[in-house]
């Protein structure tokens, strides 16, 4: 912080709530589209789960 002037600090402080609003108000469309779920072939599990009778 030692390189910042008092005026600059005040400016940053004033902008913080706005930054928060921007972050929280970001439209869902701006988020990265979810990719396909990972294929898990790493633990020798059954892809079919328990018997239907279970």
């Amino acid at each position: 912080m030692e390189g910042l002037s008092r005026r600059r600090l005040v400016g940053l402080s004033a902008a913080l709530p706005l930054l928060g609003q921007v972050s929280w108000a970001a439209p869902a469309a701006a988020a990265a589209a979810p990719g396909p779920a990972p294929v898990r072939l790493n633990y020798n599990e059954s892809p079919f789960g328990p018997s239907a009778a279970a």
């Binding site: 396909p36 294929v39 898990r40 072939l41 790493n42 633990y43 020798n44 599990e45 892809p47 079919f48």
Partner: peptide
């Protein structure tokens, strides 16, 4: 690991 048909195709 062996998964189902769709998983093996993706592999």
């Amino acid at each position: 690991s062996v998964g189902d048909e769709a998983q093996m195709r993706r592999f």
